[in-house]
Design a binder for these strands. Structure first.
Lengths: 234, 234
DNA sequence: CGTCCCGTTGAGGCGGTTCAAAGTGCGTGG
DNA sequence: CCACGCACTTTGAACCGCCTCAACGGGACG
């Protein structure tokens, strides 16, 4: 695949493939729970690791929200993904992280030494397939995000994010209509490739149109799901 | 990780029929790949698989250029990635492909049955780790693409693509200054989230500024690498 | 020689950014 | 408990860049 950034090209050319997935879904929580390691508290805006750091640890989010991001040469921050409790960052087997990670809220994470990961994979080869599946899920999510960034209108981007958060709530058994925006407008803007003003304007436009309620800046109530969905591809 | 798209609704849309007769394929020797499976010829604009298809095969690109893409509800095509000879698509272990794949030029690919992949990985468990590494590399490339899409200016996007193609040439031992754009302006636009007019304008602006030469529409010669690099973060 | 597809070039409009300022919520300290 | 201060959000006005629409040019092919 064409790599847009210079990363001292890793060419693992011809290899072979995975096995049939055991069952639909979660590459989250329970898979990683047996993994050991101490729990670390990270304050809001605290970094877990930085772009280019040696990948000595993976991190399982226990609570709070963590984001992966890159700082561009001009100082801009681009958020690559949001990670919620149960998600694992940095488990892939490259020598260095290709991005930074920081907590968007106060968070707790489990530090999983890489040596332990490798040892476990050697002892239990089926774990590698499990991680491969996790990577496939993350790859899919990243592709979704990519398609979203290419969306034509700002409204479509913001609506997509709201719907994604709503789906996540539903998947967890929570109310899909009640969305808590734990991240700031700046975080959302850096995630969607928009300015904070535009994010704010879109949310308030949706509110004016009766698509959502906005009782607080951090609290969104979806009132017209179909309407939001229609905006997604506009 | 937050998934922006609903993985449950896969819309496989209409295929674009090849309008051109199959172009000649540069003949090369019988590439002996460790991966088994028959070699398939794919004409330009021919599809390998469609979004939502059962992932019954993986595909190793032998020659030509293949792209992964999605068709949005409004009919727009978004290209997720370019794949060159040696790259493998669809090796991840999800049940269905989450995207379509089509040849941008006449191409040859090796069809690798999934059953074979499963069998090989059972016989040689260490292969799963190699696939995990491949996934990590692809994930990194996708993140790079994502950051590129969030770039502020159209010029930055086009310059990023040119530099990526140049780096790929260098990695292969070819002349990094001579770039062949085997894909059309439409393909580039769908990859960068731009219109074909803007892509064309940016290329010709670079030419006017002396950054590149453009002897033919499909042939770019880099004249000022530093200049292009400066535009990248503008 | 005509057609089709692709690339280029121009004119105009719109959406998101930029710049600026006011409003809101919340924690801290008096 | 209230007042203050700070950070975040909201809102407004003007600008700029990319998209849209349109027309032209050029190679490939029948």
């Amino acid at each position: 695949m064409l790599a847009l950034m210079d990363q001292t090209d890793q060419f693992a050319t011809t290899v072979r493939a995975p096995r049939r997935p055991p069952a639909p879904v979660p590459a989250l929580g329970p898979a990683a729970s047996p993994l050991g390691g101490p729990v670390q508290f990270v304050p809001a805006r605290g970094d877990l690791f930085l772009d280019g750091d040696a990948a000595s640890h993976a991190f399982e989010v226990i609570d709070g929200i963590v984001c992966a991001y890159r700082i561009l040469p001009d100082g801009e921050r681009r958020i690559i993904g949001f990670y919620y409790p149960g998600d694992v960052l940095g488990y892939c087997c490259l020598e260095t992280h290709g991005y930074s990670a920081q907590a968007l809220t106060a968070a707790r994470v489990r530090r999983i030494p890489r040596a332990m990961l490798e040892r476990m994979i050697e002892e239990r080869p089926e774990l590698a397939q499990r991680f491969l599946r996790m990577a496939a899920v993350e790859l899919t999510a990243t592709r979704d995000h990519l398609v979203c960034l290419a969306a034509k209108s700002a409204g479509a981007k913001v609506a997509s994010l709201l719907l994604a958060l709503s789906r996540r709530n539903r998947a967890l058994g929570h109310d899909p209509a009640q969305i808590r925006l734990s991240m700031t407008r700046t975080d959302i803007g850096d995630y969607l490739g928009l300015t904070i003003e535009t994010v704010s304007r879109m949310l308030n436009r949706f509110k004016r149109q009766g698509l959502i309620d906005l009782p607080r800046a951090t609290h969104v109530v979806i009132r017209n799901l179909a309407g939001l969905h229609a905006i997604t591809d506009a």
